[in-house]
Nucleic acid binder design. Structure first.
Lengths: 342, 342
DNA sequence: TTGAAAGCGCTACCAG
DNA sequence: CTGGTAGCGCTTTCAA
């Protein structure tokens, strides 16, 4: 029994305009009529139709966020920060999950455009040029994380993965590791992600001094575990495993544990992101910190500026990951020699 | 530059009605005009305004879900299942997080009503009668998980926590544990949750044969850790800790590990829910399985039936948790005697 | 301080 | 098979 303005107006003995006014706290309404209206609203259990509101008002109070995998705490943390700031400014945010599926990305973007969101944060690893074009043309203020480049209504936030991965590789190298594996995940588009390429570039720099392999699987606990199996069953015996993110690293830890390999005694493991879970794993993960909260905040403020200022030039913000040393890494050699994989 | 139907119609040389028809695949449109329209749509990068659509059409294609804490994988799993089924039927789902904050719950519900969602799944631990009333009056098909009772347009899904907790307590008791602690979380409303009450009821049955304590903290990794600290620093020395859910249990595991207490050697730990993470912790958690995927599915189908049938009597579905035995529990006694908390 | 009326962009019904 | 037109529920001038 969805009530509408008119019913409320009738019951309160005023016009719909007046009801609208009190509901929006606009242009002083006499206190007596205001209370009368409010009473009618309560009495009828009236809830304004947001679609009509948005349509009539012309502007939406919601901002969208599209992520690859909300199951991975990394994305969730970004979302939380974004939402916190949005709410503080009277916006609500609706999220869409792509599950790394390009097709899903497309429909999510279309959905957001259809909703006429006030702004859109796209936090996915890959995205083809055409889609970016489509979004740009929509005139919706956007902020991309880790994909595309700044332009018209689009702001760019990116992490210098190259540097982050490099730091990890060098750290491990200095610890004596010469046999490295990289565990990544599918990016939905193209087989190699930026992080994987950064890894290859880093290890390649050491020439034949270090042997390495990369393997990818789905993002997640199970993916990390499977990748480790594939790696170890394939006969490669890394002294250190570098994971594309903490989430997968936790899966790696489990598989290693179940095979009786100790971390970091036999194998060192590193994550990436520094999600809360990385402190809670056993052992806690050495990782590269990425400031998710700041990213969420940056995204929101970028969207807002973009909305106020009419089409400013796109900006670009680059974030540098910081190495966080914990118990999952240690010197190479000892363990590997002491124990064989079954 | 948000285009609209009229522009498309003009460019294609047809009426808006025709454009609407091809966009909705309704009533046969001549192939030639159809292609012409589609071309115009593409050319203008046109995206239909969903608000206008919903308003004009009268029915929304989105269903809402409200959860206490999407960060806890339990809720996310329910969401995923719900979304999967929804998408398959052409619905999208938008979620709202309450963070166990009653005030937040209220605004989320209002928001959903304002959106005129086609259905609403409420997955929160507590909710006051007034709100339920407000929702019931909205005529929106609802499904509640673990709260309130079935009525008009409302279906109820609940887990028999009583039985779940009881099974855990008995299992531990049989293992020789006589000193039990329960770690729960705030429910937002009232200090004691149903699970905590179930715990108290279970242990009380054994009279003075078992000593026990309960402590609550925020839901999450940190909450579990803090609660454990409070417990242990408070001088209570439980031989087993029963957690309200797996998520918090992982936090408990960490604190225990850092204090040099072995699990299950010194202390046994149990979780609840059987989330994926419970298999990946060290040691993996003994827990009670709750079929999240099934709950998500049930929720969706309930919503759909409720929508088709006009106001059927509310139904109620009860789910029984199943005990899952893993490495975090073992016989009592040995360890506790061998080691003292610092 | 309040009311009347013109849309917002789209669907749906009624003609043709 | 296609066009015209009346709303959907609300905001927003413009008058009063």
């Amino acid at each position: 029994m969805p009530r509408n303005l008119e019913e409320v107006a009738k019951l309160a003995g005023v016009s719909t305009s007046t009801v609208s006014r009190v509901l929006n706290n606009v242009s002083v309404v006499k206190t007596s009529t205001r209370t009368r209206v409010l009473k009618a609203v309560a009495q009828l259990n009236y809830h304004p139709n947001l679609h009509a509101r948005t349509l009539a008002g012309g502007k939406s109070r919601t901002i969208g966020m599209i992520a690859s995998n909300m199951e991975n705490p990394f994305f969730f943390d970004v979302f939380k920060a974004l939402e916190a700031h949005a709410q503080a400014s009277g916006y609500e945010v609706v999220v869409a999950n792509t599950d790394y599926d390009p097709q899903h990305l497309v429909s999510s973007i279309r959905l957001m455009i259809g909703r006429r969101v006030a702004g859109l944060a796209v936090v996915v690893s890959e995205m083809d040029q055409e889609l970016i074009q489509e979004l740009a043309q929509s005139q919706i203020p956007c902020v991309f994380y880790d994909v595309g480049s700044a332009r018209r209504n689009i702001t760019n936030i990116r992490v210098d993965y190259r540097k982050g991965v490099e730091r990890i590789v060098e750290y491990l190298y200095d610890l004596g590791h010469r046999s490295l594996a990289f565990i990544g995940h599918h990016s939905g588009l193209g087989p190699t992600s930026e992080r994987e390429r950064a890894f290859v570039a880093s290890v390649s720099r050491h020439g034949s001094d270090v042997e390495w392999r990369t393997v990818v699987d789905r993002d997640g606990l199970d993916g990390g575990r499977n990748a480790t199996r594939e790696l170890l069953d394939g006969g490669f015996q890394p002294s250190a495993i570098i994971c594309v993110n903490d989430f997968m690293a936790v899966g790696v830890l489990r598989e290693l544990r179940e095979r009786g390999l100790s971390v970091p005694g036999d194998v060192s493991v590193t994550g990436f992101d520094n999600i809360k879970l990385s402190e809670y794993s056993a052992p806690p993960l050495t990782t590269a910190h990425i400031p998710r909260a700041k990213i969420g905040e940056l995204a929101f403020t970028a969207l807002m500026q973009n909305e106020e200022t009419v089409l400013p030039a796109g900006r670009e913000v680059v974030i540098e990951p910081e190495l966080v040393l914990r118990g999952s890494t240690g010197p190479a050699g000892r363990g590997a020699a002491r124990k064989k994989v079954s």
